Computed example of a mutant assay.
Amino acid sequence: MRSFIKFLALMFFSVFVSHSVLAADHGTTQEAEAMVKKAIPYIKTKGNEAAYSEFNNATGSFIDRDMYIFVLDLNGKVLAHGANAKLIGKNLSTLKDVDEKPFIEELLAIAKSKGKGWIDYKWPNPTTKVIELKSTYFEKNGDVIVACGIYK
Rank of each mutant, 00 (worst) to 15 (best):
F4Q: 01
K6P: 02
L8E: 01
L8F: 07
L8D: 01
M11Y: 00
M11K: 05
F12W: 06
D25K: 12
G27M: 09
M35K: 07
M35R: 03
V36T: 03
K37C: 07
K38P: 06
A39C: 03
I40K: 06
I40P: 04
P41C: 00
I43P: 02
I43Y: 08
I43E: 07
G47Q: 09
N48G: 08
E49V: 13
E49H: 09
A51Y: 07
S53N: 05
E54K: 05
E54I: 07
F55D: 01
F55I: 05
N56G: 07
A58M: 11
I63R: 09
M67V: 00
I69Y: 04
F70L: 12
V71Q: 01
L72T: 07
G76K: 08
K77D: 01
V78L: 10
L92W: 10
L95M: 15
K96T: 12
K96H: 13
D99E: 09
D99A: 10
K101V: 10
L107P: 11
L107C: 15
G117E: 14
W118F: 08
P124C: 13
T127M: 12
V130P: 07
I131K: 06
L133W: 05
L133A: 08
S135E: 15
T136K: 11
T136L: 08
T136F: 12
F138L: 02
F138H: 09
E139M: 14
G142E: 11
G142T: 08
D143Q: 13
I150E: 01
